[in-house]
Structures are given as C-alpha cells and as structure tokens.
Amino acid sequence: MAKIHVNAFIGRENKNAKLKLENNSQVIDLLKKLKINPVTVIVSRNNELILEDERLKDNDEIKILSVISGG
C-alpha cells in the first residue's frame, strides 16, 4: 500500500513536521501519530478548517492550531 507524505505545522510548538502516513489516512490518524488530543486543536488545510475524518492527500500542508491560550 502506497504511503503519503504530509507537512504539518504544529502551532503550539511553533514547529513543522514531515510525516509519512498510510494512504487514505484521516486527520485523526495524523493527530494520533503526533499524540495530540483533537479537543485541544483546530486543523486547517489551505486556510479552511477540516474535520477529523477528512482524508489527507499526498503533500498536504496542514496547520494544527492549539485552542489553548493564556494571558
């Protein structure tokens, strides 16, 4: 089964991660791989919010923004 590559910006850590995922992976699979609780983030692709069951595509640029703020 082919793999896909996804570039994810992780807002809370202010860093980018390149991940290899199974073909047909969903946003939830990406979050699980990064050990991120979906309750604590919103996820966007091309500046549009996407849900946890959204299928990811090869070379997707994903932003994972923390909902937790302080001050």
């Binding site: 604590t40 983030v41 919103i42 966007s44 923004l65 923390s66 909902v67 703020s69 302080g70 001050g71």
Partner: peptide, 25 residues
C-alpha cells in the same frame, strides 16, 4: 468551549496574534 471560540476566531480572521503569555503555565 475554547475549541468553538478558536474556530469562530479563525473563520472571522481574529486569530492573527495567537501566542501564549510566557508566564502562563
């Protein structure tokens, strides 16, 4: 919820300055 507020802020372009107070934790 905080997640709802963040989504609303994102959609309405209010999420520009999204950083955390260094004293927050």
């Amino acid at each position: 919820t905080e997640k709802e507020v963040t989504a609303y802020a994102f959609i309405n372009g209010l999420l520009d300055s999204f950083n955390e107070c260094p004293n927050a934790p």
